[in-house]
Amino acid sequence: MKNYIFAGCLSLASVLFCSCDKEGVTMYEESPTVYFGEVARTYTFVENMEHIGIGFDTVKIPLQISGSAVGRLREVAMIVAPDDTLHTATSDMFSIGKGSIEAHQYKGYIPVRINYSNALDDSVYQIRLQLIANNDFPGIDLLNRTFTLSLTNKITQPSNWSRIKNYFGPYSDSWYRFILKTTGLISIPYWSTNGSIDKNNPDPEKWTMTLYEVKAYAAMVKVALDDYNRKHPQNQLTHEDGPEKGKPIIMP
């Protein structure tokens, strides 16, 4: 009995001492995950003529992360999507560089070197890319999306057309050629309202144009289209290719 009482007192004292233990606050840490900042990109040497002579160019595919920024550079790994039937580019057309997220950053790039070849002059080739897990990013895009990088030396629908079609209307190669000729631009690098300073811009270096500039260029094109149609009343400007082929060009 004496032993029971002693044991009881000891247990009580233990419990009391346990309550004095200082418990540290456990912070929630999200597993670092990396994903593509865009879903597709079209690269045409038409917009980068000087690189035909150089023989290659580099496309920086934008990356974003979830989880916290950390105080060191983190590497990102990417491969060609295995057994992807949409992948048509040959291995000599490109090479994948080393991607990274710089210290204290939530965005980064993974470079892909694009080699020019005559095959691109009349065709569009696709590179299908997937991110893979590594030590720095054990988590990758939860949706497991495959990034499509289209290569060509033809004029082709830019990957941001859905963002500018409200100002220029439906796409066709002939219409896009008219737009570029009228504006003197090689592309319309618009992503979101405030251009490079927008926080949601996945690639501020590429998507530099503001909405106000898009509207200005759209007005300029509208004047040129109207002028063309007035000079050619019997032969108004039409889409020469694509789904709208044969239809007159109408700007919103």
Binding site: T193, N194, E213, A219, V223
Partner: peptide, 13 residues
């Protein structure tokens, strides 16, 4: 009322 760009646009149509 924008921070993005402070240039005159194309002329109004």
């Amino acid at each position: 009322q924008t921070q993005a760009i402070h240039k005159f646009s194309y002329y109004l149509l």
